[in-house]
């Protein structure tokens, strides 16, 4: 027998994560577009405050309510603040809220759904009824209620958005885990000496990730919309903090008097972000699905 170390053995060509990413992006131009848009959003979230031409909080009464121009691309608001700078700087806050909320509901929903799907029985029944109860509420109203009751802070917006999203993740994971509970590879994992918890966490749950990724991506867009919606009705983020929902709400007062840019540009940006996440879903699924690595 020749001594061949495992690493020197020939590996299939595209096993590298980066190769695979490039392959997925090449195969689907829509995914590529979504990733470019996503990169733009991430860059404005990370470096926004450093990149923008004006301080988003600096008012300039002399230049209030200016229409879009070369100096102020998106015009200025009633206090003379640059709308473009405010829109870009707001990206970070909106992204943090939605990512944190989705991450929370992903973790919580996964744990609950996986346990219910794997062990079934009364845990499953109880959990399903609780989820049914949450879903019976109009979700946005429930979120409003939670924020109103717990206090008007950014953390509470995140918790509220997370709670109303948990049922979707729990349901999805429960179904995915349930169909794989009796699969051959799960039984084989038990024969290999894995405890139930390990079988669930290391063998079954990772196989539920591809459909989860689609859900995560759609949910991110939806969470942004939800956070903006809460701010729009005056819950959560407070002025003068730049945030898309507040900016649309403030700008709405000026539409009748002709200053359309105050509401339109933050609105467009919000739409752009939600659209990006909706497009991103399929691409993310392709990336986490090993079957695409051919």
């Amino acid at each position: 027998m020749t001594q061949v170390s495992p690493d020197s053995a020939e590996r299939p060509r595209s096993s590298g994560a980066l190769d695979h990413l490039i392959y997925v992006l090449k195969a689907n131009p829509v995914t590529l577009l979504a990733f470019v848009m996503f990169a733009l959003i991430v860059i404005s979230a990370l470096f926004g405050p450093a990149l923008v031409p004006y301080d988003p909080l600096q008012s300039d009464a002399a230049n209030a309510l200016q229409a879009p121009s070369a100096a102020h691309w998106f015009g200025t608001d009633s206090l003379g603040r640059d709308v473009f700078s405010r829109v870009i700087v707001a990206t970070r806050l909106d992204l943090v809220i939605s990512v944190a909320a989705v991450a929370l509901s992903f973790v919580l929903g996964s744990v609950l759904g996986a346990v219910a799907g794997y062990w079934g029985g009364w845990i499953d029944v109880v959990l399903n009824r609780i989820l049914d109860t949450i879903m019976a509420f109009p979700l946005f109203v429930l979120a409003m209620g939670i924020v109103a009751a717990m206090g008007n802070t950014i953390e509470n917006i995140i918790y509220a958005t997370a709670i109303i999203n948990v049922p979707f993740y729990a349901r999805l994971v429960r179904a995915e885990v349930n169909i794989r509970r009796g699969a051959g590879f799960a039984l084989a994992a038990r024969l290999s000496g894995n405890s139930d918890l390990r079988v669930l966490a290391l063998h079954i749950f990772p196989n539920a990730l591809p459909p989860m990724m689609v859900q995560v991506s759609l949910n991110l867009g939806w969470a942004i919309l939800n956070a903006a919606g809460l701010s729009f009705i005056g819950l959560g983020v407070r002025p003068p903090t730049p945030e898309w929902g507040i900016m649309v709400a403030e700008g709405a007062n000026f539409i009748v008097s002709g200053e359309w840019w105050l509401a339109v540009f933050p609105g467009l940006w919000l739409m752009f972000a939600v659209f990006t996440f909706n497009l991103l879903g399929d691409g993310l699924r392709d990336i986490v699905d090993p079957r695409k690595r051919t």
Partner: peptide, 11 residues
Amino acid sequence: FQDATDSLNPR
């Protein structure tokens, strides 16, 4: 196991 495809973890 019976079905070699089903008995291997796809990941």
